[in-house]
């Protein structure tokens, strides 16, 4: 599905690619099941084509809020009691994870 207008079918490869972006492992049967479901949801988008929306800016906040700030003041919390206590794996007060192979950034 590249355009909502022409209703091109969503392919299983598309679904596979999206699952990779979303960091989800899908087996063949799940891809099979999800493909038509995702397609029918994306088909809903064609309803939008009935409206001329060019002159409308995307909504940022329904109330039009802007310029919301906080002052530059420090608030201290005890991370050991808090976040580290419920972490899956911790060593030396750090979050422990498997090596980041092939993901140098």
């Amino acid at each position: 599905m590249t355009e909502t207008e022409n209703n091109k079918k969503l392919s299983k490869e598309d679904v596979q690619k999206v699952s990779e972006l979303a960091m989800l492992n899908l087996d063949e049967s799940q891809v099979e099941a999800f493909t038509p479901q995702l397609e029918s949801i994306l088909d809903l988008a064609s309803e939008l084509d009935a409206f001329d929306l060019d002159k409308f800016e995307p909504t940022a906040h329904p109330f039009g809020l802007q310029n919301v700030f906080r002052d530059d003041e420090i608030e201290r919390v005890d991370v050991k009691q808090g976040a580290l206590a419920t972490a899956p794996d911790v060593e030396a007060n750090q979050f422990k994870v498997p090596p980041a192979l092939g993901e140098e950034r």
Binding site: V68, F69, R70, D71, D72, E73, I74, E75, R76, V77, V79, G82, A83, L84, A92, N93, Q94, F95
Partner: peptide
């Protein structure tokens, strides 16, 4: 509102917001 400081003991300059704990929200530092 966690302290912005170079170095320091690991994870001491943190807060639920900058740890991205579920439910926390960002507010811009003026």
């Amino acid at each position: 509102p966690a302290q912005n400081e170079f170095g320091g003991e690991p994870n001491t300059n943190t807060h639920p917001v900058c740890l991205g704990l579920p439910g926390t929200l960002p507010v811009v530092n003026k």
